[in-house]
């Protein structure tokens, strides 16, 4: 195995080209190192991108918060701008593994590993993020639904493409986001369920809602039925409950030997949806938490 430390994006592209598909980009490596050892993933060359200054940046640019792909979860959840605009993302980043994992793992990695229940990726998914990707052919932007190919499979080929940053539109005054997690243990555990939501509320009614849930399918699954139904609905306990039931229509949870049966996940998903919507209403001072 060869280990290359890249100092710029251009260098990454050169290294990738040289390796001809046998390389893998490495940021935190908290999953990749174990996956290579277990044979789940293969890489002859590792390209460490964590020393590229522009990939570490977290900044506000033209109405967007831009998070460099090599910024660690700790750097993200402790950053004043992230704390100011996206408390739900802060909450979720703090749920990945433990602080020791967050100190090296990245948000980009949380998306690229494509584990359906990845907390940070889930909270991010409803924030309308744009993923900036660079490869031989140039730079392009992708949306959440472009990123997930299957359970634990990303559309992004880490042997050819580099994610450089994640751009998140800043919320307007009447918008807020939330993240709820049903967990057997606060740390060092994957969730039984997690739900992320973002909404705009005007005059006590939902203008629009983005609602996603996991692990109930591939990646962060949209609760389309609930999202559509919620538009124009009064912000109330009854509305949340109905939305929770509708969310089930897009959810197909599986039984896990540890993290809950299908029945349990179905029984509690509406509760998590309800709590996620309540969390938004509370943040926007429409209801009391």
């Amino acid at each position: 195995m060869k280990y290359l430390i890249a100092n710029s994006t251009t260098e990454v592209l050169e290294f990738l080209k040289e390796a001809g598909g046998t390389a893998s980009i490495l940021a935190g490596g908290t999953d990749l190192v174990l996956d290579i050892e277990s044979g789940k993933k293969k890489a002859d060359v590792l390209i460490d991108v964590t020393r590229i200054p522009e990939l570490k940046k977290i900044e506000e640019v033209d109405g967007f918060l831009e998070i460099g792909a090599a910024a660690t979860l700790t750097e993200i959840h402790s950053h004043p701008l992230v704390r100011k605009y996206f408390p739900s993302l802060v909450k979720a980043c703090k749920k990945v593994g433990s602080r020791l994992i967050q100190n090296v793992a990245t948000l980009a990695g949380n998306v690229i590993t494509a584990q359906p229940a990845a907390d940070a990726g889930m909270a991010l998914s409803v924030l309308d993020p744009r993923f900036v990707l660079v490869d031989e052919e140039g730079t392009r932007e992708c949306y959440v639904d472009d990123m997930y190919a299957g359970f634990g499979v990303s559309t992004l080929d880490s042997g050819r493409t580099l994610m450089t940053k994640i751009r998140i539109p800043l919320p307007k005054e009447n918008e807020a986001a939330s993240f709820q997690r049903l967990e057997l243990r606060k740390s060092l555990s994957l969730p039984m369920l997690n739900v992320a939501a973002m909404a705009a509320i005007k005059e006590g009614k939902f203008e629009w809602v983005r609602l996603r849930m996991a692990p109930v399918g591939k990646g962060p699954v949209r609760a389309v039925e609930a999202e559509e139904w919620l538009v124009g609905k009064e912000v109330s306990e009854e509305t949340f409950e109905r939305a929770g039931e509708l969310a089930l229509e897009n959810a197909n949870p599986r039984s896990n030997p540890l993290r809950g049966s299908k029945e349990y996940r179905e029984a509690t998903l509406p509760v998590m949806v309800k709590r996620a919507l309540l969390e938004i209403a509370t943040q926007l001072n429409v209801m009391e938490g």
């Binding site: 280990y3 430390i5 490495l26 490596g29 908290t30 190192v33 174990l34 590792l46 460490d48 964590t50 700790t74 602080r99 020791l100 994992i101 100190n103 090296v104």
Partner: peptide, 15 residues
């Protein structure tokens, strides 16, 4: 300055 898990860290990260 940061606490990290040395067991899942590639040695070259220490460069």
């Amino acid at each position: 300055g940061t606490a990290v898990l040395s067991c899942i860290m590639p040695v070259m990260k220490a460069m």
